[in-house]
Design a protein around this nucleic acid. Structure first.
Length: 591
RNA sequence: GUCCUCGUAGCUCAGCAGGAUAGAGCACCAGAUUCCUAAUCUGGGGGCCGUGGGUUCGAAUCCCGCCGAGGACACCA
């Protein structure tokens, strides 16, 4: 048993040890591709390894021959019942039931920490997510990224990484200016202006963009605080220099406050909020440009027009360009516009330099799929700034289509069918939202069926998993909630039914699921694992229904009862631990 | 035109770092309830993994072409 209680890792260590003994002259790096996995077909045994096939070439031994020798070695292990060569060179391993059952006390002893990865060296991983523009309330479009990012951060922590969860506030661009103008309009209204909305829109540089009601209270608040000092005579627009900075800062703060509340309602947390304006104010843009200039990765040039459809207003313009093509991008990317001001990309480069300087060896970004075209240039920038030492992984999240009564709910601000994040949470609850958002790969489109998500049936995974946990708790309550430490000592030889052993084998796979999901940055795998685990448990439960000798609590068999209570408690522990990674609360009962 | 993501059962989707006979749910058909919650479970049918090549002991998985879907494509964020 390894410290992490990972049966597969333990067996892999045995396999590698056996290989080393068989092939003493072979350098150990040849064992890197050795896998010990659950076989696809349970009839093959408890575990299978590809070791003979993977090592055969370097060892200059035919795979079947090597497999046979390996089997001899492995069969000699006390925890192995049999090891048999199969197919092109697989080794199928059948474990003693005692070894399989040893997972149960390991889970109970470790508690929620079962499946935790080893402590990782090298500094924290930075995970940036949500980063919605502070121009309005959060809607369902932001929701998926928020949930995926938050779950990914929790998953990486589970896997042993230190994680810094970050929100990048886009408070420096044209959108925020437009927001300020829109809030100013509500302020003038609060003062009782006689101006019409259309006149105001016409007099505003980029028009009146944000017309939603949510800015009305902001206007009222501005009047309460600043009276009429920000306006001209008779509640007419004053010169922007008198009010723009004030209104912008106030409105951004109001929007961020609302966003924070929404995120809190979703159970999403961040450790750090980084302001784009602050990043620029601290001079990171200049530092980034200087760093790239020093590496001779910056020049002034004119880009080719985009192939295919050229924008109508395209004309050749000299710009300050970053040599992204040297780092795998398709074209070099502008850092400054033709008027010399910085591009959004430049600010983002600055932000990433700041992160690199803060000492993160790994950066993760969760973006909407519409930003997919942006990935290469950002990775190029990070590679350039860090001399390829810092990695940037981007997780893209696809669109969510909200369905109700079998009809897609159209997202339209004008038609008033705009679904805010808060609406969604109010309708189905935070846990259902989070779990459901994680039942698909992040980059696959998904339907969010409001009716299905609250349905209490097999085809609602949220319910199915929660129900399994509730059943576990029900059994444990019946038994008077025995202490886990005591159950960890229980003899388990009574656990012999195939359904019981199948459940234990599933639990044995939890650590490797965590590890693999974290490495792939795919939190949805946790949701699928929990569904499988819940299924194994429901099967077992029903076995007790068919055959009363398999019920968990048997007054006439105290030892079997204790063994099964240990099994149930271990199941509940992993269900809770998995739900925690998803940020979902386990329920005690379903009534 | 270029780039990105994707194409697996009637539907919605898994498939872990290339592994053995490709899985789950829904839907359909047939069953199980004196019981710790039947809100569950058992069994059955259903597939040229878009398509054509390549890499190798072995490909849904990796590489290339084609077809199809969605997205992104200078000075927006």
């Amino acid at each position: 048993m390894t410290p992490t209680h990972d049966l597969f890792a333990a067996m892999r260590a045995h396999v590698v040890e056996a290989l080393s003994a068989l092939l003493p002259e072979l350098p150990p790096e040849n064992f890197a591709r050795v896998l010990v996995e659950p076989p696809r077909d349970a009839a093959h045994g408890d575990m299978a390894t590809n070791a003979a096939m993977v090592v055969a070439k370097a060892a200059k031994v035919p795979p079947p021959k090597l497999a046979a020798s390996l089997c001899e070695k492995l069969a000699a292990l006390p925890v192995v019942v049999s090891a048999t060569p199969a197919g092109p060179g697989f080794v199928n391993i059948k474990l003693t039931e005692d070894f399989t059952r040893s997972v149960v006390p390991a889970v109970l002893a470790a508690g929620p920490a079962y499946g935790d990865g080893p402590k990782r060296e090298g500094g924290p991983v930075n995970v940036e997510y949500v980063s919605a523009n502070p121009t309005g309330p959060m809607h369902v479009g932001h929701c998926r990224g928020a949930v995926v990012g938050d779950a990914l951060a929790l998953l990486l922590r589970k896997a042993g990484f230190d994680v810094t969860r970050e929100y990048y506030v886009n408070d420096a661009g044209a959108q925020v200016l437009a927001l300020a103008y829109a809030a100013y309009w509500r302020y003038l209204q609060a003062l009782g202006t006689t101006m019409t909305e259309e006149d105001y829109a016409a007099a505003t540089p980029s028009g009146l963009q944000y017309r939603g009601d949510y800015l009305v209270p902001v206007g009222v608040a501005l009047r309460q605080i600043f009276k009429d000092t920000l306006s001209g005579p008779g509640a007419t627009p004053a010169d922007p220099s008198l009010w723009l900075d004030t209104v912008r800062d106030f409105t951004v703060e109001a929007m961020m406050s609302a966003i924070r509340d929404d995120l809190a309602a979703l159970g999403v947390q961040h450790d750090v909020f980084i302001s784009e304006r602050q990043v620029v104010a601290e001079g990171w843009l200049e530092k980034a440009e200087a760093a790239l200039t020093a590496k001779e990765l910056i020049y002034t040039g004119v880009l080719e027009p985009p192939k295919g459809k050229t924008p109508d207003d395209w004309e050749p313009r000299p710009q300050v360009l970053f040599r992204a093509t040297q780092f795998g991008d398709d074209v070099d990317r502008p850092l400054r516009k033709s008027d010399g001001s910085g591009t959004y990309f430049a600010n983002d480069v600055a932000n990433h330099l700041a992160k690199i300087e803060r000492g993160f060896p790994q950066l993760v970004q969760v973006w909407g799929a519409d930003h997919g075209g942006y990935v290469k240039r950002m990775q190029a920038a990070v590679a350039a700034l860090s001399d390829r030492k810092v990695s940037l992984d981007v997780v893209l999240t696809q669109i969510v289509h909200v369905m109700k009564n079998g009809e897609p709910v159209r997202m339209s601000k004008r038609a008033g069918t705009y679904i805010t994040l808060r609406d969604l949470i109010d309708e189905v609850g935070k846990d259902a939202v989070r779990f459901t958002m994680l039942t698909r790969k992040a980059d696959a489109q998904m339907e969010f069926d409001l009716d299905k998500v609250v349905e209490q049936s097999r085809d609602n995974p949220v319910f199915y998993v929660q129900y399994a946990h509730a059943r576990c708790r029900s059994v444990l309550r019946q038994a008077g909630d025995p202490a886990l430490a005591g159950l960890a000592e229980a003899p388990l030889t009574a656990l012999t039914d195939p359904a019981e052993l199948a459940l234990i084998r599933r639990m044995a796979g939890w650590p490797r699921t965590v590890e693999a999901a974290a490495a792939a940055r795919e939190p949805h795998r946790i949701a699928f694992f929990l569904q499988d685990l819940a299924s194994d448990f429901h099967v077992l439960w029903n076995r007790g229904r068919d055959d009363s000798t398999l019920r968990f609590i048997r007054a006439e068999e105290p030892e079997a009862t204790r063994a099964r209570l240990a099994l149930v408690a271990a199941t509940a522990t992993i269900l809770r631990s998995g739900l925690a990674v998803m940020g979902v609360e386990p329920v005690e009962e379903m009534r």
